[in-house]
Design a protein around this nucleic acid. Structure first.
Length: 876
RNA sequence: GCGGACGUGGCGAAACUGGUAGACGCAAGGGACUUAAAAUCCCUCGACCUUUGGUUGUACGGGUUCGACCCCCGUCGUCCGCACCA
């Protein structure tokens, strides 16, 4: 009998077609079984899938298939994050309409994903650029507007001069646009904002409930929200020192305890008082301008010198009217945090100290470490910003910093200037409202109308959707919607006069902030079917890259709250479980160096090992190639491997198996040709072993062995089943793979024995049972191979619809335990003894061992530690 | 600067709650089969030594413990996030 090699090119499309025909992965909302929603972050339709997608979707698919087998009603949908700038860039560069470009890309990527054999419910597929989707997003926007969660304000914005658009703070990285890399400028524009700060406290508090999220992500969000507790303190201005006779300045501080160390106030260049002062003094105006300009090149901030200018304004100390302090404009004070004004305590803050030294202001230490000496404690070049004991602080002296904080807060709250308390406790957040206006075409139009008489009005819901016009041009910079001949002209919904449409579109992060909810009922006319959303949400397992730890995940958490307030769903958090997977990385190859360095694709080179050294040569010419660092796969470094090529030559199962092997899923995995071949060898080996024994097993009913030489087979099968099940529950795919290898190695002998006819019926029944378990275990990872093996055994049901096997505890438990026997903590012997042997029996048996006897040399042991089922340690 | 994570063979890694360090895979070396090759199968594989055994070994230096990759203190290194946030 000759066994054919396993041919994925034949088997994989065949099974994919069968799953598709029988609608195995189409999910019914009304299915009564317990729900499980597994979701991978949906892709941007760039045109081709990459290995990162393969890894991400392979992980999600293992979870989906495993949970389905475990009896859950699984929702596993797929869609496209389809709005965004690359489509417009393509339009500009290649004269192709963004819509056409996007939908073509979606079509080819869909084909690629389907070739992976993912168990997705394609009937729920949508793209965020579908009118059906952004129509509902516009409805959400209007509902949020009604609830006061959307507003418009003139504000300084981050302007990307290359992409000609506004960026959110989160999209500015090191002072550069996250996409274009251009230096960001500051401009004043009227923008639309989502009131994410409405939920600052809740977004922070609820992080504690997300116990299936990585600690790292929760911490990053916590820092991003940045809660601080402090005091706003009003400082009385000395009469006739302020330009327009202003009466007071309010500062925010988290360290009111250090109030007696204050030596100046500093305000932002954008502070109203600074502006007033600038209007009357050219030097001040010039300085403010300089501060604003410096603010544009944020990259230089790291080394930026602390600079200030005395405004001439003087304020009185809250606890001592005779103590006057100068007010400076300082380049390091931000207008949009706190009140845009601070008091400087040089001894307790490094920045203030640098500033004070530069401008010759007093430095009075007011806090020293608890074990310090008040007489000798001084502050030199390094400020002391820790807690401790108050000194040089009048009535606060001797208190702890905490006590001093409380005392100052209480005293100033009881003091009044004007008709209000001098100070109030105040919680501040770093989180800012989310600016969503983008001066771009390829995004969801903001559904509002500007009327000269009636103001800014939402588009009435019956007039939705506001569709993007198709006839636009991209031959000049700026927003094509602005220069469209007719699109923006519309009648005012209130008075009927000529009015203008808003031409800004929404940040594409809006699109991805609620797509997980839309998947629960994508056919619905409203944004959600509330019952469906409440049933399916939260997503039980969300899987994606760590790069979305803040933006996408925080926005989605905000949207979930906003959608609850607007009655579209009733859940608290969108994602119950979150898993952030590592990247797929690859060696880099290059020829030449310096400016002439050229990157070479792995497909164009050959690698061989000479004297233990790996050498790379160019396939075409034999030229030597430099092997470089292992880096994230990127087009620019050409270290990419095309999933299509891998699937064509090895099959989807091999690709899936490989990206899940070896490395823990949250760490990077190194793509290597040798590694892929190892994975491929596994699929071939499994097929060969199963198909060789298939004839002998076809007519056998599977049954675990309880005794005899087949017992060991059933034991390893059930133990592996239990272990792999645990690994899948924990998403420890690499460990599952290792155990599957072990299992196959253990089954190789028995399968050959069966194949050559050397086994009785009981043995064959046990082997068949073990093989059925093996097939179930590999099925989530290599689903096509599993189906093929199962069919070879004569099974007519599909693995994709089969239940997960149940392990037998009696076969999992060891009846005999092998105890390592240590003497003084070092292993010297082993003891095999019945599982239920009591402590005494174990001790007696251990003392009877030759190795123990010779170590004791006739003496009594000092101590014997027996850890049941684990280890024995004898102290001599 | 602030916050966090990590550091184990030639490589990717495993080791459950403090209990045999290196499972499993890759690479390498040796052997079997073959006219030959591929494929497959078997063996070896942290280091050192006087090799049926012993010593040593989880970045480095200490500590706690019968017992430490794991807990504590300190040092070094790598990576990631945030960054004038008062």
């Amino acid at each position: 009998m000759s066994i054919e090699r396993y041919n994925p090119r034949d088997a994989e499309p065949r099974w994919q077609q069968k799953w598709n025909e029988e609608e195995v992965f189409v999910t019914d909302n009304a299915d009564p079984r317990e729900k499980y929603y597994v979701l991978e972050m949906f892709p941007y339709p760039s045109g081709r899938i990459h290995m990162g997608h393969v890894r991400n979707y392979a992980m999600g698919d293992v979870v989906a298939r495993y949970k389905r087998a475990r009896g859950y009603n699984v929702l596993h949908p797929m869609g496209w994050d389809a709005f965004g700038m690359p489509a417009e860039n393509a339009a500009r560069d290649n004269k192709v309409h963004p819509k056409e470009w996007t939908y073509q890309n979606i079509a080819s990527m869909r084909t690629q994903l389907k070739a992976m054999g993912l168990s997705l419910d394609w009937s729920r597929e949508f793209a965020t650029c579908d009118v059906d989707y952004y129509h509902r997003q516009q409805m959400l926007f209007i509902d949020m507007m009604e609830k006061g969660l959307v507003y418009r304000k003139k504000s300084k914005v981050n302007w990307d001069p290359v992409d000609n658009t506004v960026l959110a703070n989160e999209q500015v990285i090191d002072g550069r646009g996250w996409r274009s890399g251009a230096l960001v400028e500051q401009r004043e524009l009227t923008q639309w904002f989502f009131k994410i700060t409405e939920f600052s406290q809740d977004l922070l508090d609820a992080l504690d409930t997300l116990d299936h999220w990585p600690e790292k992500v929760r911490l990053m969000q916590k820092n991003w929200i940045g809660r601080s507790e402090g005091l706003t303190i009003r400082w009385e201005i000395v009469p006739d020192t302020a330009p327009n006779n202003d009466r007071e300045i309010t500062v925010y501080t988290t360290r009111p305890d250090t109030l007696f160390g204050a030596s100046f106030l500093a305000i932002s260049a954008d502070h109203p008082l600074a502006k007033e002062a600038a209007a009357k003094d050219a030097a001040i105006e010039a300085f403010c301008e300089e501060c604003r300009r410096a603010g544009t090149s944020l990259a230089a901030l790291e080394t930026a010198e602390k600079k200030g200018m005395d405004t001439g304004i003087r304020v009185r100390h809250p606890f001592d009217p005779s103590w006057e302090l100068p007010v400076y404009i300082a380049n390091f004070v931000l207008m949009d945090y706190g009140t845009g004004a601070i008091f400087g305590c040089p001894s307790g803050d490094q920045r203030d100290l640098d500033f004070a030294r530069k401008y010759g202001l007093p430095v009075v230490p007011v806090v020293m470490p608890a074990d310090g000496d008040a007489a000798s404690f001084t502050v030199g070049d390094i400020a002391y910003d820790g807690g401790g004991v108050m000194i040089n602080s009048r009535f606060l002296d001797g208190m702890s910093t905490d006590q001093a904080f409380e005392t100052v807060a209480t005293k100033l709250a009881e003091t009044s200037i004007g008709n209000a308390p001098q100070a109030e406790r105040k919680v501040n957040f770093r989180l800012r409202d989310w600016g969503i206006s983008r001066q771009r075409y390829w995004g969801c139009p903001i559904p509002v109308i500007h009327c000269d008489d009636c103001g800014v009005l939402p588009v009435p819901k019956q007039d939705l959707p506001v569709r993007l016009p198709d006839d636009v041009t991209f031959d000049q910079p700026g927003n094509p919607l602005d220069r469209h001949a007719t699109w923006r002209h519309v009648a005012c919904p209130q008075c009927g006069k000529d009015a203008r449409r808003e031409t800004d579109t929404m940040d594409t992060f809006v699109d991805s902030s609620w797509y997980f909810a839309r998947f629960t009922a994508p056919w619905e006319n409203q944004p959600t079917d509330k019952n469906a959303a409440n049933h399916w949400l939260p997503v039980d397992q969300y899987i994606g890259g760590i790069e979305h730890a803040i933006l996408h995940l925080l926005y989605s958490r905000f949207f979930t709250r906003a959608m609850r307030e607007t009655g579209h769903l009733d859940v608290k958090e969108p994602f119950k479980g979150l898993f952030t997977q590592g990247m797929v990385v690859h060696e880099t190859y290059s020829r030449g160096n310096g400016l002439t360095r050229e990157w070479v694709s792995p497909a164009d080179i050959n690698i061989e090992e000479v004297d233990g050294q790996r050498r790379a040569t160019l396939l075409s010419s034999g030229e030597d190639i430099t092997i470089g660092a292992i880096e994230k796969m990127s087009k620019s470094k050409k270290n990419v491997v095309d999933p299509d090529d891998i699937i064509a030559s090895y099959g989807a199962d091999t690709a899936r198996f490989f990206v899940l092997s070896d490395s823990p899923p949250d760490r990077d995995v190194i793509w290597s040709e040798a590694g892929v071949e190892g994975a491929h060898r596994f699929t071939q080996r499994m097929w060969r072993l199963v198909s060789e024994a298939a004839d002998a097993l076809k007519t056998i009913e599977s049954k675990p062995a309880k005794e005899g030489d087949a017992l060991a087979i059933s034991q390893i099968a059930h133990r592996t089943l239990k272990a792999v099940q645990g690994d899948y529950d924990k998403l420890a795919f690499n460990k599952a793979v290792a155990r599957i290898y072990e299992f196959v190695n253990a089954l190789a002998g028995p399968l050959s024995r069966v194949a050559t006819g050397g086994a009785d019926a009981g043995y064959r029944a046990a082997v068949r049972e073990a093989v059925e378990i093996l097939i179930a275990l590999v099925a989530p990872i290599t689903p096509h191979l599993a189906e093929e093996c199962s069919a070879a055994l004569g099974n007519t049901n599909m693995i994709a619809t089969s239940a997960w096997p149940v392990y037998d505890e009696a076969l999992v438990i060891e009846n005999e335990i092998v105890y390592p026997v240590q003497i003084n903590g070092k292993k010297r012997a082993e003891l095999t003894i019945a599982r239920d042997a009591d402590q005494n029996a174990v001790q007696q048996a251990v003392l009877a061992l030759d190795a123990v006897k010779s170590a004791l040399n006739g003496q009594a042991p000092k101590k014997i530690i027996v850890v049941p089922q684990r280890i024995v340690n004898i102290v001599v």
